[in-house]
Design a protein around this nucleic acid. Structure first.
Lengths: 349, 349
DNA sequence: GTGAATATCCGAACCGGTTCGGACGTCAAG
DNA sequence: CTTGACGTCCGAACCGGTTCGGATATTCAC
């Protein structure tokens, strides 16, 4: 019951009748230890329930056994989006076996990002970091490179410099989505995109424009009467709803709307009900990033889905390899798939 | 550009022309250092951008400057529920000023909980831990007490033993909710509760039964023809939908349903649409735990809301005090408020 | 039987902080 | 002038691991 002094490597060395050095070698599976000795040490450690002090281990120059996850989104949108928690779950699953911990930091603003990364580096708190929501010309890239801090970008792979990326293609899903809607007869398609400063938004929007032109889709009034309608929003439900309203009151309203995340899509769906616009009778809706949310509303939303947890696991394994000094290249995650549900249908005549 | 050797306290001691001991005392604001000397040291540290090594500091027996958050929910429901991310944001906001980090661990199952806590303790990875989703007779309580590991329970305050709790009352909101529905004329009210093994579920259900009897509410058929209908679900949308369907097809269906979280409520709302049951015309819906989600669907859901981030901040401050050795008692968070939106209305005649 | 190669183990230094006891100088009280 | 109380600063030990060079024992070739 007593808190008890925690057992140290000295204790188990003494118990096994060897020196600290030998005990350390045995416990870390290094060669140069007789099999019998190793067994004695391992045995002693086991029965004493010994665990190495992470601090002592970190201090002696090797490893912290901690990775950092830096999230830069307002708390409001962070909570609403299932993406991050799923990503975290996936990362953790990959880390659990190795006894590596995950240090989480939620910040707001580029300055805070830089401060956090510098502080982590200076205090040697983490062996490496995950970088999410990359912006164009992101200052974090240069920073981790100059600090020589191992990092993996979740997203990309454009603009990641020398930093390895766990990426998933953003162009193919755009095409798949547009082609699918095109085949249903839709010619006026709008896109409620995310924050324009984010790199993946730019990629998606560019591909959306390119493919729209290729398919010869109609422009939407108000968009300089040409080209497809792309509105930017901040991933919150409020802005998703606002954008939807703005689109649906147009004279030549779109017959299909693609949203850059599930929250905005759900909010958009609520707007259609409120405005009594039949879905998918008058307008079809597609959400980018599937989550349980999409299947729960009525009608259930057609979505571009992927296994976010697996994505996180991939990023975690990449970062662990990078920390181990391996020279890993970018790796592509499983592509997103279009999951057709009730919110999409043939375009109105 | 070079990674550069990180500056140590020795460097800044030399730069200031003092010993390591004096430098340490100066940097930690301890007394017994002349003002002029202290200024020199601080100055040197500042201009060198020095930060103490967390490992070294932790090793010398004092502080890890890390708190642990242990989450035991399947990844699926974790992602869907905004509660945790908001809680995390709140905790982090309170921790940020102090330079304390948050170590996150997502596990599944009681064994994994125990293993994680023991590992954290043995490796001295954290100064203290947050415990969420307390069960009745929760084994974590005894563990952290026997290990003398500072802890704060998020929830409670029943069954927390000697562990301090950041709690919010679960009985008053039940009453407020029932009384509100009663005043609207509702007499058949059902409750889609959470997992029965969780302590707060038990509290809520007991109060729901007590107050229902007090108000003389009708029992629901199938419930042994007596007492209010309480169904248990696992917080997932699927089970929330299933429970809703089961309730609405009863001969004497409830005129109001209260859900234990927002996800199930949203799913329930979708079921009403699918079954063409008008809300709030035929049935009123209330969600426990408000989130942006509730305001986004149509009709927007009446909900029991609270400032989850502030709740997390409270828990964080409590735990920091406990780590500092203060003997803090349980503290109650701001009470939940009923936020009336469009999903509740007068009971059908 | 001898020398060298090899396997095994140990002592001691080191990582970068904190902390404690003591040395030194100054100043006021006796 | 002596003594003692402070204020200031330093040396050295310590936290609990890892690592490296070297000591000792064992084995092998010749």
């Amino acid at each position: 019951m007593s808190p008890a002094r925690r057992t140290t490597i000295d204790d188990i060395a003494r118990a096994a009748g060897v020196s600290k050095a030998t005990a350390s070698a045995a416990l870390n599976g290094r060669s140069g230890v007789a099999a019998a000795t190793r067994a004695r040490v391992l045995n002693a450690a086991e029965s004493a329930g010994w665990q190495p002090s992470s601090a002592a281990r970190a201090l002696s120059g090797t490893r912290t056994d901690t990775l950092g996850l830096l999230l830069d989104r307002p708390a409001r949108t962070l909570g609403a989006e299932p993406f991050y928690m799923q990503l975290i779950s996936g990362i953790e699953a990959a880390l659990a076996d190795r006894g590596t911990g995950l240090l989480l930091q939620v910040v707001e603003g580029e300055d805070a990002e830089q401060r956090t990364l510098r502080a982590w580096w200076a205090a040697r708190r983490v062996d490496g970091v995950f970088l999410c929501d990359l912006r164009e010309d992101d200052s974090r890239i240069a920073l981790v490179e100059s600090l020589d801090l191992p990092a993996v970008v979740v997203g990309g792979p454009e603009g990641t410099g020398g930093v390895t990326a766990a990426w998933s293609d953003n162009t193919a899903p755009v095409r798949e989505c547009l082609d699918y809607l095109y085949s249903l007869g839709h010619r006026r398609i709008a896109y409620v995109a995310g924050l324009p400063e984010l790199a993946h938004t730019a990629t998606r929007v560019a591909e959306f424009r390119r493919r729209s032109a290729e398919l010869g889709l109609d422009g939407l009034e108000g968009d300089a009467a040409e080209g497809p309608a792309v509105l930017h929003a901040d991933y919150s439900g409020e802005e998703g709803a606002r954008a939807t309203r703005a689109l649906l009151i147009r004279r030549a309203a779109p017959t299909a709307i693609v949203y850059d995340n599930d929250v905005m899509a759900v909010a958009g769906a609520a707007v259609t009900q409120e405005m009594r616009v039949p879905v998918p009778g008058r307008v079809s809706l597609v959400a980018w990033d599937d989550s349980t949310l999409c299947g729960l509303v009525h009608p259930p939303l057609t979505a571009l889905g992927r296994d976010v947890a697996a994505y996180g696991g991939l990023a975690a394994r990449l970062l662990l390899d990078r920390v181990d000094g391996a020279d890993v290249g970018d790796v592509e995650a499983a592509p997103m798939r279009l999951i057709v549900r009730g919110s999409t249908g043939p375009a109105p005549e």
